[in-house]
Simulated assay, not measured.
Amino acid sequence: MSADRVVQLRWEPRHVADDGRVELSYPGISVVSSRQGEVVDRKWVPVGEEPTFADDEALIAVLHAAWRWTRPAA
């Protein structure tokens, strides 16, 4: 792993206003990739009360890509 490439996981709900009167909130996990302190990528994956197999696979794919990114090719 390179010290200049960092991946952080953050619990971040998304807030969406439909018409300015009603705001909905969706729980999720942000996977934030930074290089030398600068954010270079951010992916948000929703997390529901009863996640499906597809939800699990989507999160695994995002995490796998992020952690592989921390190991630059030799």
Rank of each mutant, 00 (worst) to 15 (best):
residue 66 A to T: 03
residue 37 G to P: 00
residue 61 A to S: 13
residue 14 R to I: 09
residue 61 A to D: 15
residue 64 H to W: 15
residue 32 V to G: 03
residue 72 P to I: 05
residue 45 V to W: 01
residue 23 E to I: 15
residue 66 A to M: 02
residue 63 L to I: 07
residue 53 F to D: 11
residue 61 A to G: 09
residue 74 A to Q: 07
residue 46 P to M: 00
residue 36 Q to M: 10
residue 23 E to R: 14
residue 32 V to C: 04
residue 18 D to I: 15
residue 45 V to H: 07
residue 14 R to D: 07
residue 16 V to G: 04
residue 55 D to S: 03
residue 65 A to G: 14
residue 58 A to G: 01
residue 48 G to K: 00
residue 6 V to N: 06
residue 25 S to C: 07
residue 19 D to R: 14
residue 41 D to E: 06
residue 32 V to I: 15
residue 22 V to S: 07
residue 7 V to T: 13
residue 27 P to E: 04
residue 19 D to A: 12
residue 36 Q to H: 11
residue 55 D to G: 01
residue 1 M to Q: 07
residue 59 L to H: 08
residue 10 R to Y: 06
residue 54 A to D: 13
residue 1 M to G: 08
residue 60 I to W: 14
residue 25 S to V: 15
residue 47 V to Q: 03
residue 29 I to S: 07
residue 34 S to Q: 06
residue 13 P to Q: 08
residue 74 A to E: 09
residue 28 G to T: 03
residue 45 V to I: 11
residue 47 V to L: 05
residue 8 Q to R: 15
residue 7 V to A: 11
residue 73 A to L: 14
residue 15 H to G: 07
residue 71 R to C: 01
residue 23 E to A: 09
residue 35 R to V: 11
residue 65 A to C: 02
residue 14 R to S: 11
residue 57 E to C: 04
residue 69 W to N: 08
residue 43 K to G: 02
residue 53 F to N: 08
residue 1 M to N: 04
residue 67 W to N: 10
residue 7 V to Q: 08
residue 18 D to C: 09
residue 71 R to P: 00
residue 65 A to P: 05
residue 33 S to R: 15
residue 5 R to C: 06
residue 23 E to H: 02
residue 63 L to M: 12
residue 42 R to A: 08
residue 59 L to V: 05
residue 3 A to G: 06
residue 19 D to H: 14
residue 48 G to W: 01
residue 44 W to C: 00
residue 29 I to R: 10
residue 74 A to F: 04
residue 12 E to K: 09
residue 40 V to N: 01
residue 27 P to D: 13
residue 35 R to S: 04
residue 11 W to C: 09
residue 61 A to W: 02
residue 68 R to I: 03
residue 28 G to W: 01
residue 14 R to Q: 14
residue 47 V to G: 00
residue 29 I to W: 12
residue 18 D to N: 12
residue 14 R to N: 08
residue 42 R to I: 10
residue 38 E to D: 05
residue 60 I to R: 09
residue 43 K to P: 01
residue 16 V to E: 09
residue 6 V to I: 14
residue 36 Q to W: 09
residue 33 S to H: 02
residue 10 R to I: 07
residue 25 S to L: 02
residue 6 V to C: 08
residue 62 V to S: 05
residue 10 R to L: 11
residue 72 P to Y: 06
residue 38 E to V: 15
residue 1 M to F: 05
residue 51 P to M: 00
residue 74 A to R: 13
residue 11 W to V: 14
residue 4 D to W: 05
residue 52 T to Y: 00
residue 28 G to S: 02
residue 32 V to K: 06
